[in-house]
Design a binder for these strands. Structure first.
Lengths: 255, 255
DNA sequence: AATCATTGCGTATATTTAACACAATGAAAA
DNA sequence: TTTTCATTGTGTTAAATATACGCAATGATT
């Protein structure tokens, strides 16, 4: 029974490989059908969900750990990451499970996994269609949820999510977004809907277009979106050089 | 020899009371004689300096730990705190000391203090004149330094300081500042110099005054600054209610 | 009484934001 | 074929905000 062995080793020996008392929690945002989505996991036999997370190997950079964790959950490499806050509440434990989870498992009462954890929060922006959600060893499902219709989250994960979203809202007023979140080619309405969804408010179509074009981060292609029953919008790609540059300097306006 | 015992216990037993692998580093800003200052410590017999820091007790909220640490270093309670980033580099150890530090000390080679640390960075804003800098048990001096003339800092503390200052610069464009940093009564030029020092650039005197007054966070007193050889500026206090409110909502302009 | 650095308030101009008008497009309907 | 219609691309205008100065008032110092 390989699973049993793995779990027992993780609980009983994990502190030898991972930094104890420190966990990573990730809020993975995707955009699909004009909705902002978040990736959640749920435990076997437990009806509350949790954010994808994990631990830092003793010889691993923290950010490398986050990328490793997210690659395991999504299949993607090269994910946009942003550390937004670290959570140090007193009653934080890395997870909860129903008692029956431990049935047939030989796990020490003083396992590092039952200790208090300080958790470093990252949010990630990914291209929805490229993600293959993969549950981790402790969970059963890994699914997307609309940010407006989240299930009950365990621990303080609802709070972590709220802080992540707020941080993201703040971020997009100062830095470009969309690369990593939209397909390679997209239209101006697509981009606008992304902004509207994250900011959770309507924007003026015409002013939005003018501002975005003024930033210089967009390339307008000599193509329009096919198969629309009205005037077809141009397709755009991001001007990567300008995009990367603006990621560092920020742009001066707010939407 | 009480000191010897204390140090040995801290190194050899500390992991029983503190969360291992996690440290706190604080960038304490003060303002004095129109200069932005930072509080630094230095080790006995070591000529590089470090930021004030410490560890989290197992039954203590993280933010409580930060306040405890800062109260120990400054004598102040009720300090403005802002968590700005968490540092997870691979080669982070909580401290370095010269070999001779361990002379006559019985310290285990595998002490928790030699492990790798993830450090949560906070900056603090304090009223310079009220601070009584107090070295910690491992250090000899605790002194203020002009941010433009810092000594060599150990580990990645220079990087941590840079990030803190940048975060503070960003912050003051959106939220009020000055309370906790200026004396109770201050003049408009005082406040402006504070902003100029943090932002590291000149601001127009007249526009600054107009904007600050428009925020409503200032009370103009029926007093002027005494003992000046020219037109005496009004004294102000902060309107605490409005200040607190704006701390939550932010104000809409940038300087 | 004159000097002078500095303050408080005002104004003129440029820049940015917000709100809206209108022709162009092209598939779908008539 | 022609008309309809939702939607796009661009332009225009008014309001709000930011920036750059002008100038009289102040009050210790000369």
């Amino acid at each position: 029974m390989e699973y049993k062995e793995y779990i027992e080793k993780f609980f009983n020996q994990g502190h030898k490989h991972y930094l104890s008392h420190i966990s990573i929690d990730c809020v993975v945002f995707g955009f699909h059908e004009n909705e902002l989505k978040v990736l959640l996991l749920n435990m076997k036999n437990l009806n509350s969900w949790v954010l994808p997370g994990g631990f830092i190997l003793k010889d691993e950079e923290m950010e490398t750990a986050v990328k490793r964790i997210l690659t395991e959950r999504t299949g993607l490499t090269d994910i946009f990451l942003h550390q937004f806050q670290t959570f140090g509440g007193l009653s934080r434990s890395s997870f909860t499970v129903p008692e029956l989870f431990f049935k047939n498992l030989q796990i020490k009462k003083d396992s590092w996994m039952f200790d208090r954890f300080i958790s470093v929060g990252y949010y990630a922006l990914v291209e929805y269609s490229k993600v293959k959600p993969i549950p981790d060893i402790l969970s059963e499902k890994c699914e997307w949820f609309n940010v407006h219709d989240l299930p009950e989250l365990a621990h303080d994960h609802r709070h972590i999510f709220d802080e992540a979203w707020q941080s993201l809202r703040f971020w997009i007023n100062h830095y470009p977004i969309g690369y990593n979140l939209l397909p390679e080619k997209f239209t101006m309405p697509d981009l606008q809907k992304l902004y509207e969804t994250i900011l959770d408010r309507k924007l003026d179509r015409r002013n939005f277009q003018r501002k975005m074009l003024a930033t210089g981060i967009l390339n307008r292609l000599n193509e329009v979106k096919p198969g629309v029953a009205h005037k077809a919008p141009y397709l755009y790609t991001f001007n990567i050089a300008a995009y990367e540059k603006t990621l560092k300097t920020g742009f001066g306006f707010a939407l």
